[in-house]
Simulated assay, not measured.
Amino acid sequence: MNERTREYLRGRFGDHYRQVSIEPPPRANEREWGYIPFSEGGTRMVRHRAWIDLVGGADDLADALADDSVRPQHVYYSAGSYDDPGANSMGRKGWRGSDLVFDLDADHLPGVDPEAATYAEMLATCKEALLRLLDILAGDFGFTDTDVVFSGGRGYHVHVRRADVQSLDRSARGEIATYVRGSEVEFEDLVRTEAVGGAAGRTSPAEKRTLPPEGGWSGRLHERLEAFVDELVAMDEDAALERLRAFDNVGEKKAAGALRAMRENREAIAAGNVDVHPAFLSVTRTLLTEALAEAGAPIDEPVTTDINRLIRLPGSLHGGSGLAVTPLDRDELADFDPLDDAVPDTFRHNDIAVEVTEPGVVELLGDTFSMEAGEHRVTEARGVFLMTRGRAEKAPE
């Protein structure tokens, strides 16, 4: 980013903050504040700032960010609360407690190739992971009062601010993160095994395996199992057998046995019995092992475990995209398009000249188009997007 570009963005970010109002997080005066200014290199963090250091006598947080001495490229506040948030070392701050924060990054999701997927495709996949995360937090932990935020860049943040999570240490937060990710859940951990009495002529009891249909990971996977069974039972027999033979180590005989068990034992399966037939148990184990890899929320675990983490300020601008860090209600998520809805109104109305240095596809404002290298006149939102992402420089007007 050259000097002309840097000064243009610094000025326009300041203009934006003068036009909006930003609501600070709860207990703002107990949190550490930090920001990255529009300086050469763009990575120097100014941190260990108390609320009064940042806001001073400004009437609104946005007014403070618009001040000539600030006008930041990125703005952060701490998940933690402190006795002295402005102290210049963590040991001197006096930790009181921390919000529980979850971070999903689109380019770090399993199965996403940042080199092949478009920005819009990655963000759409990230929203699916977000919905899984919210379901797990609500259904398994009772965390229904969460704050959801589009990060302005690669994904979403979820904040849990309940009083009973504030004092959790790193270890406890790590256990929650591991559970949410589902990375250490095994099929055999979820199945209950009980002796039910041996068959005639046998001295040892038989075993019955049950996948509890309610609660946590077992209930979540039981839903997937039932949906799979319903799907196959409704199929033509040849199609159903072909579907079963697609599983590893399932031949024609095992497929036929599993399908027959599904059709004859639907009520038992609904009750959680996965031992209705050896072939059905084998298919179930394979199916749910695969489902486990897809059902978790692939959060960035270090963000959740870090009690001193700095996180992006909702309402601020992301200096790597020019998009707004956007708080969202749960009922807004389905229709939320980050590459349109998070575009600040400040940048929607003017055209500007830019010199494209990295040509390629641009996805923004509900449109996808390709830009060649060289000078172009574009909607300011697209120009800001290109400049903040390092794909263009500001051209003279």
Rank of each mutant, 00 (worst) to 15 (best):
A240W: 04
I269Q: 11
E226C: 05
L190K: 06
A258S: 05
F280S: 10
V233G: 07
V276I: 14
N273A: 09
A270C: 02
F228M: 06
R224A: 05
A177H: 04
G201N: 10
L211V: 02
A256P: 03
E175D: 13
D275S: 15
R181S: 15
A172L: 12
G219W: 02
L168T: 12
E242Q: 11
K208R: 15
M262I: 08
R202V: 10
N265G: 09
V185G: 01
G219Q: 03
V191L: 07
R245E: 15
R263K: 15
K254T: 14
A255I: 11
R220L: 06
R243Y: 01
A255K: 09
A234H: 06
D248E: 14
F187D: 03
S167D: 13
T193Y: 04
G174L: 09
A270E: 14
R202T: 15
L259P: 08
G216L: 04
L211Y: 02
G182C: 08
G216A: 05
R202D: 11
E242W: 00
L259C: 05
E207T: 12
G215Q: 00
L259G: 04
L225A: 08
S218R: 03
V196G: 05
A200G: 08
F228H: 12
F247S: 10
A195N: 10
A256N: 06
R266H: 08
P205I: 11
A239I: 08
D230Q: 12
L221G: 11
L232R: 07
D189N: 12
E188A: 14
S183I: 13
